[in-house]
Amino acid sequence: MKILVPVKRVVDYNVKIRVKADGSGVELANVKMSMNPFDEISVEEALRLKEAGKAAEVVVVSIGPAKAEETLRTALAMGADRAVLVETDDAVEPLAVAKILKGVAEAEKPGLIIVGKQAIDDDSNQTGQMLSALLGWAQGTFASKIELGEGKAKVTREVDGGLQTIEVKLPAVVTTDLRLNEPRYASLPNIMKAKKKPLDKKSPADFGVDTAPRLKVLKTEEPSGRKAGVKVKSVAELVEKLKTEAGVL
């Protein structure tokens, strides 16, 4: 079985982003970029399934600018076999990403697609569910455990009240949550090897997908800030202040 893993190039999770003063967006020049953390978890899971003999090939795909090749090379260095870059400089919304991924899935015919639960830049949490809908497949979102069986998979999901376990028919789309695994680091020799692994370049038009946005971004602004308050010296002073000053006890 082949596993397809979409990976997105995003601003590194350690970066505190800045909103542009004119309200036109977020400052992205000279900002450190990395693979979306949930996608690292997806790549790791696919590699573990391959290492356990349950998958034959791991293909990674990214939709984004030429520089997204770096993200794909990182995934190849972790151990993925092959990469597809669908190159575009436009900002692509989750629905269009899902449509492109559907095209990739139709060409690659994977038995499982492992998608991140959420991209930490747009915080949309949509793409995996949309892809699953477009393909007419089952979805197992927010997975903290995936057990592959014959023609089906058991997925343990992180839900509001705890955990839910479902069984999905394969092929399926699974989205990854934080507790699924701890992603490996790529070793230096593997980083060198990854440079020679195959990477196919495509465009959204190759899949007949129109990436025109459906949401018009009118403005991007700073959230209303919070100021640091006071330091209290003791528990007694804290309780006193919460009772009399803040009135919350």
Partner: peptide, 29 residues
């Protein structure tokens, strides 16, 4: 398209939503 996690309704087709872990607020139509 889905508009995820709106925090304010500006008008029936325009909404505010946080991005980048709430470090920016987008107004989208």
């Amino acid at each position: 398209a889905q508009v995820s996690e709106i925090v304010e309704v500006v008008s029936p087709d325009t909404f505010k939503r946080p991005i980048y872990a709430g470090n920016a607020i987008q107004t989208v139509q």
